[in-house]
Amino acid sequence: MIEFRNVVVVYPNGFKALKGINLHISEGEFVAIIGPSGAGKSTLIRTINGLVRITEGDLIVEGKHVQKLKDNELRLLRRKIGMIFQSFNLVKRMSVLRNVLVGRLGYVSTLKSLFNLFPKEDIEFALSNLEKVGIREKAYVRADQLSGGQQQRVAIARALTQQPDIMLADEPVASLDPPTAKVVMDYLKKFNEELKITTLVNLHDVELARAYARRIIGIRAGEIVFDGKPEELTRDVLIRIYGKWQES
């Protein structure tokens, strides 16, 4: 369902972020991507929803060649791909509910959304997703009143409201303390299993990757240097990913 064929990404400043990635991810997988900062983890997952356009190669997501999609087609693809971020990226001055309703923007007409005319089912669906992440009572609170962990749960609810087939998470727990991080990771795992959402998570914490993923991909300097099960992730492999100074 996600297929990278010799994907290369070169940024306008000449930096080669991905150097020929070949990767196949099947439906329902839970994949952790690990690697040192600057290795291309963020770039890799951003190519999947076209936030970063690939320079060379072929990238197929849900049967579509992402690099060939026009703006309109790309939007249709994006609404089936949820994404959460390290800094949560909620609109701080808006209510939690309105933030979650952002997940419906791909489905309602621009004009209606401008006047906040979301269908009743959409609002109920948004509330039910807040319920799923355990913060329905915060629906009418301004987003910036919530703690970091709660904000990330709102972000997950926003993604769920898209009814996604794929969930991309870019360092989702890097700015959270360990217990809160666990809560967030547990939700991602839960929705992966219950709702069959294919999930790709960038993590810099190897132990967290081991604990949650059934498949781990290690990248270094824009290349995949490891792709296997958590138990195959030996010390030697970690040295290959992170270089010899990284102890884990």
């Binding site: 936030l51 949820g82 909620l90 701080k92 952002v102 923007l105 791909g106 621009t110």
Partner: peptide, 22 residues
Amino acid sequence: DRGPLEAVKSVGATRTQVIAFA
């Protein structure tokens, strides 16, 4: 803040929706 812009864009919003919501 570009973060919310990227987030709203990632759900498949149009340019106008990104401006209105983010």
